[in-house]
Amino acid sequence: MTEYNLNGQTCRGDKIKAKNLNFYYGSFQALRDINLDIPGCAITAIIGPSGCGKSSFLRLLNRMNDLIYGSRIEGTIELDGKNIFDKEVDVVDLRKNVGMVFQKPNPFPISIFDNIAFGPKQHGKKSKIELEEIVENSLKKAALWDEVKDKLGQSALALSGGQQQRLCIARVLSVEPQVILMDEPCSALDPMATLKIEDLMRTLAKNYTIIIVTHNMQQAARVSDTTAFFMMEPDRAGSLVEYGLTSEIFTNPKDKRTEDYITGRFG
């Protein structure tokens, strides 16, 4: 098992483990032989050129790819030691445990309050007091409470892009997940809103396992503890080239291809 020294303490790459993972869209192989041990309570960045399968990999982690006709998986992904592709795994439970934040903020066209209460209601929380508490806590954790506490009844669509993205993070937090997946969560945001999300991610990393896909090299360097570099093979299947501590990957990568990519010499 891979061990890391993260923020002064030893972490084990045992939260999420991809083993001999292959993934196909029909006859096209999108991911080849991925072996990756992701530590808990840390931020892992996934970087790589467009089309190398980053989003595909991320979507596998909460089985969003189940919805894609003709897709096929070989190998396993373990969450806390249990294969998420096992028949007995309840996909709804899995997605509650492994939440996802998308590139474009996608709040529902309903009130701020109802956006956050939506998930907990689905999972059986009904009482008004309970929901109010969840909404407040989730918004506080997402560092949005102070900005919206006086207008919880207003439409979420009236918020700025950065606020909407934090609202989406609050929505994910409302169902108490362990893992948060983020696919280019800042690409539609301005620099200040981006830095706020990054700050928020660092705070959340104390209690959640975060995996972020980003095209912004500086963002990966700023925000993550470990970094995985994916690349396409000649048949366009994505594979893992290098994985390690972010501080190592960005100062002294082992693989020439990683070096070339992060110094902007190809990709």
């Binding site: 960005f250 100062t251 990568p253 110094t263």
Partner: peptide
């Protein structure tokens, strides 16, 4: 230019 890796070193 935010140099990284070998460039940064």
């Amino acid at each position: 230019q935010q140099p990284l890796a070998g460039d940064l070193r």
